[in-house]
C-alpha cells in the first residue's frame, strides 16, 4: 500500500515541478522544452512501476518496466534478429520500393492529364481503405518470408505517397510557371528546376507518413504467417505464452526503431526543404 501512496506522491510532485517549469521565465528555452516531456515520461514509467508492485498486478496483465528492461537486456540477440527480419528486410525494402514507384507514377500522372483525372479519385479512395487487410493475400502469394512483408508495405505506402507526390508537383505558382515559359524552357527543364523542387515538401510529407505505415504493415503481415523470427511473430507467440515482458520489450524496440526512422527522414527533410516556411523556424 505504501508503494501506491508513493506513486501518488511521485505523480503530484512531478506534476508540480512540470507546472512550475512550464510557467517559469525559462519556459521558451530549448532545454526546458526538452526537459518537461522527459520528466513526464519518467513520471509515467515511475508511477507504472510503483503501482504494478504496490498492487501486485499479475505479470500476465502488466509487467513492471524494470522487468521489461531486464527481459530486453537478456534477449538482445533475439530482439536484434527480429528487428533485422521485420524492419530492415521487410519494412525498409518495401518502403523504398513503394515510395520510389509511387513517386515515379506520380511524375507520370503529372504528364498525362487524362490518367491523372481518372486515377487520383481512385487513389484517394484506396488511401482511406484498411489496406493491411491485403496481408493474408500477399502472404499467400509471396510466401512466409520477408518478401510478402515487403509487398504489404509497398501496397500500404503507395497510395499516400502517390497523392502527396501529385499534389506537390501541382504546387508551383502561376508566376513561376509563366517565368519558365518566358525563358522558353523545355518540359524537362521546367520539371527539374521548378516542379520537382517545389514538390519536395509534399514528397517528404508522404515519406514521413509512410515510415509509420511501413512498420505497421510489416508487423501485422507477420500475424498472417512468418518464419520463426520477426517482431510480429515474436509478439503474437509471446502473447500466446502470456510472456508479456517479452511483448513489451518488442514494443519498445518497435517504438525506438519507428521514431529513429521518422527522425532520419525529418533530418533529411530539413536539409532539402530548408527554404519552406514550415522549416525556416
Amino acid at each position: 500500500m505504501n508503494l501506491v501512496f508513493g506513486a501518488l506522491i511521485f505523480w503530484v510532485s512531478a506534476w508540480i515541478l512540470n507546472a512550475k517549469l512550464a510557467d517559469s521565465a525559462l519556459a521558451d528555452t530549448r532545454a526546458i522544452k526538452l526537459l518537461v516531456p522527459v520528466i513526464f515520461g519518467f513520471t509515467i514509467i515511475g508511477v507504472w512501476e510503483l503501482l504494478v508492485r504496490g498492487l501486485s498486478v499479475p505479470l500476465v496483465i502488466l509487467p513492471p518496466p524494470s522487468l521489461v528492461i531486464e527481459t530486453a537486456s537478456q534477449n538482445l540477440e533475439i530482439l536484434w534478429k527480429d528487428l533485422v527480419q521485420t524492419f530492415i528486410k521487410g519494412a525498409f525494402r518495401g518502403y523504398v520500393l513503394g515510395c520510389l514507384s509511387a513517386i515515379f507514377v506520380g511524375i507520370l500522372l503529372e504528364r498525362f492529364e487524362f490518367l491523372r483525372l481518372g486515377l487520383m479519385p481512385v487513389a484517394s479512395f484506396m488511401a482511406a481503405l484498411p489496406i493491411v487487410g491485403t496481408a493474408p493475400i500477399l502472404v499467400m502469394w509471396f510466401g512466409f518470408g520477408w518478401q510478402s512483408k515487403a509487398a504489404v508495405v509497398v501496397v500500404m505506402v503507395f497510395f499516400p505517397m502517390l497523392i502527396n507526390t501529385v499534389a506537390g508537383l501541382r504546387e508551383s505558382s502561376q508566376i513561376q510557371n509563366d517565368l519558365m515559359r518566358t525563358y522558353a524552357a523545355n518540359n524537362w527543364q521546367a520539371f527539374l528546376k521548378l516542379r520537382l523542387p517545389a514538390a519536395m515538401p509534399f514528397i517528404f510529407n508522404g515519406l514521413k507518413i509512410s515510415t509509420t505505415l511501413a512498420l505497421i504493415g510489416a508487423i501485422v503481415a507477420e500475424f498472417f504467417g512468418s518464419p520463426t523470427v520477426g517482431m510480429g511473430f515474436r509478439i503474437s507467440t509471446s502473447v500466446g505464452r502470456l510472456a508479456l515482458d517479452m511483448v513489451w520489450a518488442e514494443i519498445v524496440v518497435a517504438a525506438v526503431a519507428g521514431s529513429l526512422f521518422y527522425g532520419i527522414i525529418v533530418i533529411i527533410e530539413k536539409g532539402i526543404t530548408f527554404w519552406h516556411p514550415s522549416q525556416r523556424g
Binding site: 506534476w15 512540470n18 507546472a19 517549469l21 512550464a22 510557467d23 519556459a27 526546458i32 522544452k33 518537461v36 516531456p37 520528466i39 513526464f40 515520461g41 515510415t211 509509420t212 512498420l215 505497421i216 508487423i219 501485422v220 500475424f223 517482431m231 510480429g232 509478439i235 503474437s236 502473447v239 500466446g240 502470456l242 508479456l244 511483448v247 513489451w248 518488442e250 514494443i251 518497435a254 517504438a255 519507428g258 521514431s259 526512422f261 521518422y262 527522425g263
Partner: peptide, 28 residues
C-alpha cells in the same frame, strides 16, 4: 501550459511508432 509541454511531444511522437502492435496484447 504544463499539459501542453508535457503531453504534446508524446502525442506527436506516438504518430511515428507502430502502436497497432499493442493490439494482440490488449485482446489477450
Amino acid at each position: 501550459n504544463a499539459m501542453n509541454m508535457s503531453v504534446m511531444p508524446w502525442a506527436i511522437a506516438s504518430q511515428t511508432i507502430p502502436i497497432l502492435a499493442i493490439a494482440p496484447m490488449i485482446i489477450v
